[in-house]
Amino acid sequence: MRLTTESSRCSGCKVCLTICALSHFQENNPKKGALKVEGKFPVPGVFEVTVCNQCGACADVCPVDAITEKDGVYILDRETCIGCMACVSACPLNVMIVHPAETAPIKCDNCGDCVRYCPREAILDADGIVKRIGR
């Protein structure tokens, strides 16, 4: 599965952020979601959703090799991470998420829940394998 987006479909509901955090941290806290939804208001009045494309730039700069690749997905080992945040500034899409209660940044692991539950199908699997629930 490769995540991609169609921001023109996004309505800014942030279901993706809440399910991401609840799935991975067992916490109801969309501020711990590993993607970004931004509204451009009042002008031009559009939303922009940004997801990790597993480019690996984060792994390249990690001084302790806490981010490793498996089957094209870069996984952050939160135990190994020392919280230097080098990956945060290296991320070209700004989707290494920092939360004040977490020492490690928060990274997408390509689980696909955002694709399955985005009501608008604004987050998609470019390979077409994972789809919104009911599709």
Binding site: S8, S11, G12, C13, V15, P44, G45, F47, P119
Partner: peptide, 14 residues
């Protein structure tokens, strides 16, 4: 221009 949702809404009326 766009549909605009409140938090966690699958059917944005906005």
């Amino acid at each position: 221009v766009t549909d605009k949702a409140c938090y966690s809404c699958p059917i944005p009326c906005g």
